[in-house]
Each structure stands twice: as C-alpha cells, then as structure tokens.
C-alpha cells in the first residue's frame, strides 16, 4: 500500500503549505485545512467510509463523490483567484499611475 503512504504525505504537505501565508482569515483557513486533512487521510486509510458517505447522500461510489467535491473545490478556487487577481490588478494600476504621474512634467511649465 505504497500509494496510501504517498497520498497521506501529499495531503499533509499541502495542508502545511497552505497553513502559512497572509494573516487575514488565517484561523478559519487553518480549521478548514485540519478538517480537510483529516477527511483526506481517513479516506485514504478507509476507502469504504467514503463509499458509505457517498451512498448516504445519494451518490453511487466514493470515487464519484471525490470527483464532485474536487469540481466544487476547483470552481471555488477559481472564484477566489479571480477576486484576488482583480484586487491585485487595481493595486497595480494605482501604483503604475502613481509612477507615471510622478515622472510626468508639470501640466503648466510656468507652474501657474
């Protein structure tokens, strides 16, 4: 069961990597990450539980449930990325504008 060891290591590494970073909403994100890591490790160790959960909520197999969760996670990732990119774009625009205006000549040479 080498794959189980590899998967668990990967989950722990990702969770540890994501736990760092900005201070905002860090606590919430850490809690979410802990839940995610535990669920992922549980799923790796006891695949049957995944199937059991899947059947309880009306999905056929555990693998299908995984796929759906993955899709939702991916889409939410895109959404947060998009919002983040827009904020970054705005800050970049403001910064670039400041630079442009700082380097521009005065509107009236005589400074009136």
């Amino acid at each position: 069961m080498i794959v189980k060891a590899l998967l668990i290591v990967a989950v722990v590494a990702i969770a540890a990597g994501l736990a760092r970073g900005g201070a905002r909403r860090l606590a919430l994100r850490r809690v979410g990450l802990a839940v995610f890591a535990l669920a992922a490790i549980g799923g790796v160790l006891y695949p049957d539980t995944l199937t059991w959960v899947a059947q309880r909520i009306g999905v056929g197999r555990g693998a299908d449930l995984m796929l759906y969760v993955l899709i939702v996670a991916f889409l939410s990732y895109i959404a947060t990325r998009f919002a983040h990119d827009r904020r970054t774009d705005r800050r970049l625009t403001d910064l670039a504008r400041c630079v442009a205006l700082a380097e521009a000549p005065p509107p009236r040479p005589d400074g009136r």
Binding site: L92, T93, A96, R97, V99, A100, L101, E103, A104, P105, P107
Partner: peptide, 20 residues
C-alpha cells in the same frame, strides 16, 4: 505633455491617468 505608463494598463486606465 507626455505621461508614460510603466506597464500596459488598458485604455480606461490611460484615460483616468490623463484625468488625474
């Protein structure tokens, strides 16, 4: 009078820079 954007920001941003 020439105002140069250091990076490309788009026409709307260029107008706003001009207004400022």
């Amino acid at each position: 009078r020439l105002v140069r954007h250091p990076i490309n920001l788009g026409q709307g941003a260029a107008l706003q820079t001009g207004f400022d």
